[in-house]
Design a protein around this nucleic acid. Structure first.
Length: 682
DNA sequence: ACGGATTCGACC
DNA sequence: TGGTCGAAT
């Protein structure tokens, strides 16, 4: 449900920037010979030519639409160029589009506050920039107005007979008797025109934009003149605009709420809402939504542009429609493994590029159960703390699946499950990582130390490889692979009960296992092998060192630990500077020396896995006394006096971790220890 | 038996 | 808070 927010300033300048048929543009940049041709991007489904997910404007002229299949598109536009979405891990891989979106964000974020709203949409709060421009170089003072700006569409501006639209725009932008609000918008026009030019120059992508006093109107406007144009909503034109705007066109009203308004109140245009008192709307749709509706009817939307350039979560999913529904646990496991591989890669990139770590892993499943009466029952979503490394994510994801599956099937189903599934099928799987927070600055410097020579022994590798990827080494025909489940391993299926209690995963042949170890291939992170090595390394050494050391010296003085962005950044720089001076991995030696049992941790883990055969979700299987809460050690329990006893480099690190700050917006308590923890409960 | 794959936000 | 639901692209 949408909710009303107070307006922060009485006259903001907000822009919504929307990339035109973005995926198509990305493909056309890659293959310039496609430029100007009717083109569509298809997700290769093999079924009826795949599903269209983006259509060029040339193709739209022929009536080609998203929601068509490739074959239908060919019917209405035989010359259409169909480009497939890249495939990785036997599934559609959107990373090239995601990265292209980031390119655009990095250009747009130069001006004002920037919010990445989706893969191809950005909001900008240009209020300050516009105010400054109005003071320093107002449009009327310019001898020449940007041509792109002059091509803007200004809603409500009447084009006078015999005059050029461009001249009308110029006049509107420069008239000295304009309201302050409109002058700000005029500055917005110039700023956005310039930004769009920059985007085109630096990324080769065209975009459309809406400029208004709030997000809702800006978003509405950006879609009104596409492609490669911009539209402005002056305050004076709001009433006219909304008066005849079909309710369903409004953001947030395209679904059930919009239908409800039509059905309950006979509201067809946004303007129709004006006749209802706020209380009436609240009666029907709750106080929050009621107020929100009352506001949007008047063009009021206080939603702030969040300064956020990066996604809040990463997800990887795949659907298995109809006859392709997954019917065996091992095929589910196979696909989960694929999804987790992709997720891990993206998490590694994020860690690498943005120094962020995710804390929660969530599994979503869609399933059907034909047999039972309650076939409408939903497969429950499950989540758990996120541990880094492909194998760990795979393991945890599978555990989440099993937990959900048991609930979903119920107790009857479980026993009767055999080789053949009893009427259930999995029609979609998706795994996602959320609660992504910036890595505390200190950790970055710590990690630098571990780029040096590795202390690895083969058992460490075994840890990661013992939970084997069931996947083929490299799927040959990517598309075929995503079509039929042809690259799924044909693993015989033990029956649920046994599987759950014995080996959590089907295991490859012995030679296969040895080969992958010998190759030294670390499958968990392709973007930066070294990075992944770092994680594993530190996970085996550092936390025990810190935790054990501190454990012996802890006091009970509690301390809040939170971060504030600018401080994090300045600390980051500070540390970089310090570390430059002394590049010796003294911290490594220190942790090793105070952690004699550290390196054996890996063996401990292997042992657990091999002997118990069970997944690591039960930490009770650890030798008593070894484990305790040391891994989830709370930094806020550290006695500051203890720090003085540590070597200077480590003092710096710990002080950075412990620094108290005002905004408790980021949860970092014990984050380092948790992050590196080899075992977490699910 | 669908448009897929994501992402985000609100509610309870 | 985790999980569910809705909405958008």
């Amino acid at each position: 449900m949408p909710v009303a927010r107070p307006e922060s300033s009485d006259s903001r300048v907000i822009a919504h920037i929307d990339l035109d048929c973005f995926y198509v543009q990305v493909e056309q940049r890659k293959q310039p010979q496609l430029r100007g041709l009717p083109t569509a991007v298809v997700q290769y489904n093999e079924w009826k030519g795949g599903a269209l997910i983006a259509v060029s404007y040339e193709a739209r002229k022929f009536g080609v639409k998203r929601s068509m299949r490739g074959e239908e598109a060919k019917e209405v536009c035989p010359q259409i160029q169909l480009v497939q979405v890249p495939v990785a891990h036997c599934k559609a891989d959107l990373s090239t589009y995601r990265n292209a979106g980031s390119e655009v964000v990095s250009v747009l974020s130069r001006k004002g506050r920037c919010e990445r709203a989706s893969i191809d949409e950005v909001y900008l709060d240009l209020t300050h920039v516009a105010e400054t421009m109005l003071l320093e170089t107002p449009p009327e003072s310019l001898e020449e107005i940007d041509e792109e700006a002059l091509k803007s569409h200004i809603l409500g501006l009447r084009i006078e007979e015999g005059t050029d639209a461009i001249e009308n725009v110029r006049e509107w932008m420069c008239r000295s008797n304009a309201q302050h609000k409109d002058k700000l918008l005029a500055c917005g026009i110039l700023i956005v025109a310039e930004l769009r030019r920059q985007v085109l120059k630096e990324t080769e992508f065209t975009c459309s934009a809406g400029i208004a006093h709030n997000k809702m109107l800006a978003k509405l406007a950006s879609g009104m003149n596409k492609p490669a144009q911009q539209t402005v909503v002056p305050f004076s034109s709001v009433k006219g605009l909304l008066g005849s705007l079909p309710i369903r066109k409004m953001k947030q009203l395209g679904g059930k709420l919009g239908v409800a308004l039509q059905v309950d109140l006979g509201v067809n245009n946004v303007g129709d809402l004006l006749q209802f008192p706020e209380a009436k709307l609240q009666e029907h749709y709750g106080v929050n939504t009621g107020t929100w509706l009352w506001n949007i009817a008047r063009g009021i939307d206080g939603e702030e542009v969040e300064g956020r350039l990066l996604p809040k979560s990463h997800g990887s999913g795949k659907s298995f429609p109809g006859p392709r529904a997954l019917k065996t646990i091992s095929s589910v496991q196979y696909w989960l493994n694929q999804l987790c591989e992709e997720l891990n890669e993206r998490l590694c990139s994020d860690l690498d590029q943005n120094k962020r770590i995710a804390h929660t892993l969530t599994l979503h499943v869609r399933a059907y159960k034909s047999s039972d009466t309650d076939s409408q029952k939903k497969f429950p979503s499950k989540s758990c703390p996120l541990r880094y490394g492909t194998a760990k994510i795979q393991e945890d994801a599978f555990n989440l699946f099993q937990a959900g599956f048991r609930e979903y099937i119920g107790f009857y189903g479980v026993k009767t499950q055999g080789i053949q599934c009893n009427g259930w099928g999995i029609t979609a799987l998706s795994i996602s990582a959320s609660k992504i927070v910036p890595l505390p600055s200190g950790t970055c410097s710590i990690m630098k130390y571990f780029h040096g020579p590795s202390t690895s022994n083969s058992s460490k590798q075994l840890v990661d490889n013992s939970i084997l990827e069931v996947s083929p080494l490299s799927p040959s025909g990517g598309e075929r692979c995503s079509e039929v489940n042809s690259c799924e391993p044909k693993i015989e299926f033990l029956g649920e009960e046994e599987r759950w209690n014995k080996d959590p995963l089907p295991v490859l042949g012995q030679e296969e296992e040895e080969r992958s170890i010998l190759k030294g291939q670390d499958p968990s992170c392709s973007s930066s092998k070294a990075q992944d090595g770092v994680i594993q390394e530190t996970s085996l050494v550092i936390p025990t060192g810190v935790a054990r050391f501190l454990e012996q010296n802890q006091s009970t003085q509690p301390r809040e630990l939170a971060w504030n962005d600018s401080q994090v950044k300045s600390e980051h720089k500070e540390h970089k500077r310090k570390m430059k001076d002394k590049g010796t991995p003294s911290i490594l030696k220190f942790f090793k020396s105070c952690n004699p049992s550290g390196p054996s941790e890996s063996q401990e883990q292997v042992q657990t896995l091999q002997e118990n055969g069970t997944t690591s979700s039960d930490s009770t299987s650890y030798p008593s006394g070894q484990r305790r809460e040391a891994w989830s050690y709370r930094i806020d329990e550290i006695d500051p006096a203890v720090i003085d006893e540590l070597p200077p480099e480590i003092q710096d690190e710990l002080r950075a971790w412990m620094q108290p700050h005002k905004q408790p917006n980021v949860v970092n308590r014990g984050s380092i220890a948790r992050y590196f923890s080899p075992i977490r409960k699910t």
